[in-house]
Write a protein that binds this DNA or RNA. Sequence first.
DNA 1: CTGTTAGCGCATTCAA
DNA 2: TTGAATGCGCTAACAG
Lengths: 365, 365
Amino acid sequence: MALEPTIYDIARRAGVGIATVSRVLNGSGGVAEATRKAVQKAMADLGYRPNRAARRLAVRGPNRPRIAAVMPFFSTNFYFTVCRPLSQSLAAADMDLVLYDVENREGKLRLLDRLADERSCEGLLICSMGVGPERQERFARLGIPIVCVDYPLEGVPSVTVDNLAGGALAAEQLIASGSERLALVTGPSAALAFRQREEGFAKAAGNAAPIARADGVSREAGRAAAAALLDGHPRLDGIATVNDLLALGVIEELRARGRRIPDDVQVTGFDDQPLMDALGLSTIRQPMLAFGEWAARAIQSLIEAPRTPVASTRLSLSFIARGTTRQSHHQAPAATAAATTSRPRAAKAKGPIKTGRSADKKERA
Amino acid sequence: MALEPTIYDIARRAGVGIATVSRVLNGSGGVAEATRKAVQKAMADLGYRPNRAARRLAVRGPNRPRIAAVMPFFSTNFYFTVCRPLSQSLAAADMDLVLYDVENREGKLRLLDRLADERSCEGLLICSMGVGPERQERFARLGIPIVCVDYPLEGVPSVTVDNLAGGALAAEQLIASGSERLALVTGPSAALAFRQREEGFAKAAGNAAPIARADGVSREAGRAAAAALLDGHPRLDGIATVNDLLALGVIEELRARGRRIPDDVQVTGFDDQPLMDALGLSTIRQPMLAFGEWAARAIQSLIEAPRTPVASTRLSLSFIARGTTRQSHHQAPAATAAATTSRPRAAKAKGPIKTGRSADKKERA
DNA sequence: CTGTTAGCGCATTCAA
DNA sequence: TTGAATGCGCTAACAG
């Protein structure tokens, strides 16, 4: 018996009609206690499990759209923060959010294929990753709209930021506040955003500036990368990173080596994840809130009006000055148009908990 | 036309058979370009949206169990951390994780009713919240197993910790390291865990110790509560909290008032969320990883073998000493059996980023 | 290439 | 209180 038992099976076994089985199943009353028991026993014996598809078809239950959110969810609080507005918007629009955490390219592809095979979602939300053109085409044929966040995918609406400008902004800020020997700690090259930030950084810092690639986006990875970097370039006085956690790792290593921050070396992060203000990390803020809100709206309109095209948007980044950089003397070049700068207050790093409670609160999308 | 159009509708409109419609729908090939276009136009015109229930029934698609995870997901990183192992376990077991963020009691009840009405999940995972007995009974009848995390619900398997002991542990640690005038900053009384921690704290700190109730579990709420507390009791030298974020808020307020930590006043958190080590917060660690793993296993076995009872478990808490408390002189009383203590290293708070890289890494479930 | 037909598993009349 | 019959929307043979 490879197949799942159905109400027919249990009806036969209990010596009743399927209607009766259905009744006890739904507690619709009007069933003799004896027969109910018999039916329940039969269900238990056969390990019956109702088929929800059949039920929903029969009951004409609401075809509540399910949005599959595919992303390396647990890698960083960036995704958590993006998902917050997303979740709320979707709930308000009466859609379900199904979370699919993917850690690597293989996992992602396998998942996408499965989603397509089983049509297990009505909308696809992909973060920081691409989709093969053939897969993209497949979803299109199936009528499953795709929306991309933090990744520019041709042919589908996406919200992105100018990562190239962001990378440059980091370098510029470091320079503006006095660093002369810059370096960058980046993450796995699989991420397009990282590669773009690297490029932007190199453009602004000069190609001589060393770039160390961390093996992941964790603090540990950042620390290891910083160690390697500092071994080769002990005189560095400004380290940018492509991610806040990496920056924290860099800072740990710097401290372990007795370098003072920001006096000896300045450090910047990227994202402005939650708690970075408490940690006093200078960083480049991504409009995570806006990311989530935009994505929710886009997928919503795509589901309600399948053929209506949605225009992609590009949001801007801003530098948040905190305790790991010094006061900047020059304004950042206006060249990086898409990136704006804000300096709430020159919060010198002192205690373990340091809050920049100024303009830090709301992001400026 | 209140009803959704079906393939019959579009078949009629396009002047073809339903099979053809189905073909273009699935890209199964073997359709003349002309007819395909006609069909697609009809679909567009009628705003056709395939009914997934029908499809899955017809195709006998895998009845992949969907686990609805109901919790105040975005309130704290506690849930994020619990969900990580949960997500991975479920994925490995071939189940989908559907996230339902609920912010309050009403939202929760409404959601639970909807889940039951629509049978939109095969398993229910509830965090930090109860379910009404009638609702519980309803899910039971529907054959939808429930598992509770961080909340002891009679009749359903649950993972919990001894919050009473946890509250006491906080007070004891504060006392052991020299505080004499204790206070507690707690959260909304709706949360059972908070109430229990309050009770435990009061028992160990004495009923004279003031308890301030914050209006939420955010840093802002913690800070506000601390302000009120300090206004009324300026000489406090030890403040425990029921949540890390609250503790961070307390610390902000303390610093704003020029009190030194831990010299003038010691502070403890609760949970040991991610980054608390970097922030140097002394706290009581919850076994979040184990929470998630256990829940995944429980729901799994309940789905595979519906009638098999699963025993609840209670995991233990441990105190993690970091920079916001002083070195303790006495061992914590052995009375709080369920709670163990560990002091990796007396990390004096110095820089904005301070890492206790010792035994901090893995939790001790 | 395309239409006809027969289920998929369940809820729900309607009679009995 | 119970059973037989019907249909939910779609896919998949099987004929044409």
